[in-house]
Design a binder for these strands. Structure first.
Lengths: 220, 220
DNA sequence: CGAGTTCTTGACAGTGATCAAGCGACGTGG
DNA sequence: CCACGTCGCTTGATCACTGTCAAGAACTCG
């Protein structure tokens, strides 16, 4: 939720959230073609969003965690254009979009917040396009790990350790790689001592080395 | 501009546009790091937007033509995170974002319009991620040509002919390919009789063949 | 007309995909 | 508690697509 509200307004702003909804691991919050009614704020759990070609090739478009918003894809056509699937048991706040729009007109700070969330998503996707269009496998995975651990750290988790919620195949789909390449790249990072990997568990031993792979200029 | 306005409102809505601005071919409307103040509606001309890695690799994130909106990337951080460069002499309507927000609160139909524009951009980028992550060179170029000619046709141009405003290198950057691969793929399509190419001029002889390459399922 | 840019084409190389096999972890049911 | 089956992960061998390097042609614009 955005900062900068008058306490008196907080109660009104609670009105954006209609209900909560639990989503079991492996089930979808929404799918391509579902009619769009609401945005969802993730309270707990972990999601992936994906789109597909007609012939079944899947592209994971993002991994979302607590505090992030999903469903923005549905606004333009009143139908969702991607799938949102829980990678672990999750709970979301259902925010009917008409409520969001009504209250946005009343509270400029909420209006601004909504605009920033959408703009942030556009900028994030620009970054992924750069990754998919220009980077090599090692750079992609380094960027992915740094991004993930940074977001987890912002939520109070470790700066260097994490348990991945997604499979190698899902990571590969997100990064435009095959699962074997993801696995091999993990192994290489591990052999180089940059990380420790054991299945879903990853420990980053040398974050600077990852940053160097991701971005050789910034010798931080 | 959005449909469904009362004529009486039209005059107020003109207030979103503060000024017009001409942008000469090869110059930028804004660059990474420029402070964000306005969205821009393209009146005439053709733009590319791009982001870069620190070490100078460029990713074209989109090509924009008359009627489309650029600058949405700037909202989240009050700074632009991509470059917008005119590929031909252009003119844009400058829409100070504070005007957009103020009038959005007054006119729900404008508010809805703004939200749809941002959502459309998110969905478009999802599609590019799918292209960059999963498609082969021929599929990427077929998708690109079909998309471009469709947008031009919607603006009253030919359904089958076009003059590209961008170089092979810029197409390649957008599609995650090198310019030589773009050129070779053009040549292959031409040898197969699917298109005629002569430098920037492209004529689509067999749109169905392109659709088949792009999406083998839909045997339209 | 000429310089520079853009495009095409060829030869070769490299990154990551594909195919294949085996291992390890996890969960379920006996 | 253990056996077994499934799913996910790792690793090896080979292949293919696209990238790289290079040269020359065609076009553009001052």
């Amino acid at each position: 939720m955005p900062m900068g509200f008058e306490p008196a307004d907080m109660q009104r702003l609670d009105e954006v959230v209609a209900t909560r909804r639990k989503v079991k691991q492996g089930t979808s919050l929404f799918n391509v073609g579902d009619s769009f009614t609401s945005l969802y704020a993730i309270r707990t759990g972990f999601f992936k969003t994906s789109v597909s070609t007609e012939d079944g090739r899947e592209q994971v478009t993002g991994f979302q965690m607590a505090g992030e918003i999903i469903g923005l894809d549905g606004i333009v056509n009143d139908n969702h254009s991607c799938n949102a699937i829980a990678l672990e048991d999750a709970e979301v706040c259902v925010m009917p979009f008409s409520n969001v729009e009504d209250l946005s007109r009343e509270f400029p700070v909420l209006q601004r917040h909504v605009h920033k969330i959408m703009s942030r998503e556009i900028v994030r996707e620009n970054g992924i396009m750069l990754l998919l269009g220009n980077m090599r496998a090692e750079e992609r995975l380094a960027a992915f790990l740094l991004n993930l651990v940074q977001r987890l750290h912002a939520r109070g988790f470790s700066k260097s350790e994490m348990v991945l919620r997604m499979t190698r195949e899902e990571i590969g789909s997100y990064l435009g790689l095959k699962l074997e390449t993801v696995s091999r790249t993990f192994s290489k990072f591990s052999e180089d001592g940059i990380i420790d990997v054991k299945q879903r568990y990853v420990r980053i031993n040398d974050p600077d080395a990852l940053k160097m792979i991701f971005n050789p200029q910034t010798c931080s």
